[in-house]
Design a protein around this nucleic acid. Structure first.
Length: 106
DNA sequence: GCGCTGACAAAAA
DNA sequence: TTTTTTGCCAGCG
């Protein structure tokens, strides 16, 4: 799989995440072939500025949000997700049990 | 070409 | 439970 192709697939998947749902880096990587692609997914998103992708709907495996500097604001990602109806745990992490999007389980 | 870093994650301790 | 180890690989200096 070419890296460009890989990136495009990442963008495509991210673009399909509905409001109020999130996906994890590892999950996206797994769909594309291996859980070890998780880091490349992160790179793809960091390179995806200006594409209009809902990259705030992608979180790590624990439900933690991306570091603040990525979106250029402390509670930026948190507020966006909250507005969309994503469930949060008291500790500020996404409640993956409720808000993780599993396309194959619909 | 080499070594380090990172929007990661599972397993081990 | 949290921390460490290990695996993977694209970018960058």
């Amino acid at each position: 799989m070419d890296k460009h192709e890989f990136y495009e697939k990442v963008y495509k998947i991210v673009a399909t995440i509905p409001e109020g749902k999130v996906m994890t880096y590892g999950l996206i990587g797994f769909i594309l072939g291996s859980r070890y692609y998780a880091r490349r997914v992160g790179k793809a998103l960091s390179n995806a500025h200006g594409r209009g992708l809902p990259c705030h709907r992608v979180v790590n495996s624990k439900g933690e949000l991306a570091p603040a500097h990525v979106f250029g604001g402390k509670g930026k990602q948190y507020r966006l997700l909250k507005e969309e109806g994503v469930f949060f745990k008291p500790n500020g992490c996404v409640d993956l049990k409720r808000s993780l999007w599993r396309p194959w389980e619909i």
